[in-house]
Structure formats: C-alpha cells, structure tokens
Amino acid sequence: MKRLILKRLLQLGIILLSVSVAVFLLVNLAPGDPAYIKLSAQGETPTNERVEEERIAMGLDQPLHIQYFSWLGQVIQGDFGSSYRTDQPVINTLLKSFPYTLVLALAAFIVMLLISVPLGVLTAVKKNSLADYFIRVLSFFSASLPEFWLALILLYLFALQLKWLPVMGKGELKSMIIPAFSLGVVLSGKYIRQIRTALLEELDADYALGARTRGLTEKTVMYAHIMRNASISILTMLAMSFGALLGGTAVIENMFMWPGMGRMIVEAITWRDIPVIQGFALFMAGVYCLINLMVDLSYGLLDPRIKIRKESGQ
C-alpha cells in the first residue's frame, strides 16, 4: 500500500507540474502586454515609459524559462502572485471564495446522492417493471436539463409564486437551496443510470449464480450479495463526481450571485486580472486531482481485491 501511495503521489506531482506549465503558458495567449494590462487594471493610463518600467519590475524582460521557474518557486510556497487590480495576494482571494463553492458543491452532491442512490437501486431491483421504465425516462429527462434553466423554473415557482424561498441571497443557507437542488437533480439523471448498470452487471457474476444455486431467493442475492459487492465501486464513482462538481458550479453561482469561485473568476476576467485567472486554474486542478487521488486510494483500502490487483501492477 505504501508503494502504491508513493507511486500515485509521484504521478500526481508530474501531472501538476505539467498543469503548471500549461497555466503559465496561458498568459502568453493573452492579447496585449501583461504590464500594460496591470497598469490599466490599477486605473492608470500607461505611458510607454511606465509600461517599460513595469515590465522590468514584473520580470517580463527575463527569458521565458527563468520567468517560469521563479513563478513556480513562488507557487510551490503557496504564493500565487498578487492581483493586478487590488494588489492583494491571489491566494487570499481564492481561499475567501473557495468555501462557498465547496459548500454549494457539497449540498448539490448530497441532493444527488439522496435522489440517485435509492432510485438507482430501485430500478435495478425492479428491473423492467413499470417503475423502472418510469424512473429511467425521468432520469433521461433530468440528464438533458440545462441546470441553469431548471434553476430559473424553480426560482419562478418557489421564490416568486409560492414565496417560500428568497429570490436573491448573500451566501446564506436558504439562498443555496435552489442552486444546490438544480445541480443535484441534473447530475442525478446521469448517476441513476450508472448505478443501475453497475448493479445489473453483477447480476450475472459467478458468485450471484452460486448464491442462486444454493437456493437463496433473488431478493437475498440482490440485497446481501450484489449490493455489497457493487457498493464500493458505486461509491467511488459518486465520489469522483464531486471533484467535477467543484468545477461545474460557475454558471449557477453567477446566476444566483453566490460568492464562490465561479463568481470571483468572472469578476477577475472582467478586469483581466491574469494572476487571479492563473491561480484559479491551478488551484482548481490541484484540488480536483487531490480529491480523485484520495478517492482512488480509499477505494483500494476499502476493497482488498483492488489493493492486490493494483499492487501486482495490473
């Protein structure tokens, strides 16, 4: 297990290093001179001399690889540079808005779990019944729903017509219900189907057949054997979706003025605040990869079969 963890950490390191190169090179895509952009973001009308001074101050006159390594050295120490506009450290901006995105993603994730696990299990247990078809059609609908549209419909019904929920919030719990629900419902459409497939795949496994030939009822086989075996892989699949969800809240956040990462980044983009955009991309990639690594490793811990397979290098 130790070797596996080390190997994974090394892989993670390599990926994050290439992510950092990509994020660094992103700036070179930017039309215009970063020094000029920085000065204008701070409200100056830059003259040529000022831009030239700033270029040297920012180290833009150095060769590209030297710029990269000095930038990387700072990033490793948690210094993502400072915002062009406010001169505040980027990391503070990120850490201020990240909890909001985390909470929203967590709430959406819980909604998704509460919908997709029971319904997914139900469709597998009652395979080809009326309930199965009905839920599958519904899940198909919800998977095609644009979550921002669903959010507007819910807003219209529950905030404007029924007046149960606030129209607009400032980051309090009640104003999170509609955004979280919309994200969760759309996501659950996809996972109901995947849970069903995961369970049905096990139906024909040798151990299920063995249990049946020993005279166990179909119900016992399903609940005591199949579900137990499939549960870990289902949980892993669901946990992996959480990382993706963190990167998928931006649109909803902006529609509902939720003060998370998605809202922060749009504001940064308006001001062409390049260090913040860079920091955002790097931070999100780091968090996403870390979550996936943890899920992957705990998968091995929970299921001894996987652990052995992975260690023998398969």
Binding site: L29, L246, G247, G248, V251, I265, I277, A281, Y288
Partner: peptide, 14 residues
C-alpha cells in the same frame, strides 16, 4: 486535470 468548465473559463478569460 482541470474539472468541468475550469479550463475553458481560464482560456476564454485570458
């Protein structure tokens, strides 16, 4: 390694 829309937002943003 970038989740969801993050890479698109970053590219278009810059």
């Amino acid at each position: 390694a970038f989740p969801g829309l993050v890479i698109c937002i970053a590219i278009v943003g810059i």
